[in-house]
Design a binder for these strands. Structure first.
Lengths: 138, 138
DNA sequence: TCCTACATTGGACTTTGTCTAAGTCAAGAA
DNA sequence: TTCTTGACTTAGACAAAGTCCAATGTAGGA
């Protein structure tokens, strides 16, 4: 993740303590925190960090393409640091657990031209839903 | 959509004026209103209808499987009356326009067993994103 | 070291949605 | 037809998630 900080510095980012702790919280490939969770964890490292800064920083990281915004439940958005490897999400309909998954095939290609209505289709987001082993057993 | 009202009555629904106008607003296959939009349009027909009733009615219609809840932008949920025909969505990343689309192939089958992590996968939601002809031209 | 443009802060505000207590009414019973 | 009753609706308070702003602080170049 220090790679990340270097990349961002290269793009003219000021390296503040706040941005560092947000980046640190998002370190790890299989993490899908809400903004509030990021804030809580960041505050463990830097107690005076404000919610507004966390939102700002997350927004900047998203528009720089360093993290992905995921909304799997229509409530709080979640942030996925695994933005450099294309992947989709598998969500437990009961407990909400999220896993990164890699479908086979080219999902974009499955939208035939006559179903594109003149759109320049650029991306596809897929969410699989089902019961995780834990909830299925319960 | 009067079919809908009959079906619901058959399931023990009380047929109130409020439920009738909500159903009427949702009539049409290619409509994707937010709850607030549904409320505004319903209020044109029945001025004293309350927000709570619209939310209640939409929630009931969703759990009866008569309409679909769609969240394409992490903000307000939208309601899609076209719930009886499997389909996915194509969203303009600029203006937010939504179209129903029908991808080819079996999208569920594209998640290989080794990528299911023991989940009982039941459904898949797909959102294609791109520029609509209007925004691409502008 | 100093400057200053950029970053952060806290709190007010907005949007979207939920909950509740009190009043209303659809539809079956008589 | 009128009565009855439990389901439905209402207004407004409340909650969660996110945005905005003016005042203050500071990273990093000169």
């Amino acid at each position: 993740m220090s790679d990340l900080l270097e990349r961002l510095r290269g793009r003219g980012w000021r390296l503040t303590a706040q941005r560092r702790v947000v980046a640190e919280v998002l370190d790890g490939d299989h993490v899908h925190y809400t903004a509030d969770e990021v804030h809580a964890r960041a505050a463990d490292l830097l107690p005076e960090i404000s919610r507004a800064t966390v939102y700002n920083t997350l927004g900047e990281l998203v528009s720089l393409g360093e993290i992905m915004e995921v909304s799997t439940d229509g409530r709080a958005k979640r942030y996925d640091p695994n933005a450099h490897h294309a992947h989709q999400h598998l969500v437990c309909s009961q407990c909400g657990t999220i896993r990164d998954v890699h479908p086979s095939g080219d999902l974009l290609a499955e939208l035939p031209p006559e179903e594109r209505f003149g759109f320049q289709v650029a991306a596809v987001e897929v969410t699989y839903r089902g019961l995780c082993p834990n909830c299925a057993a319960g």
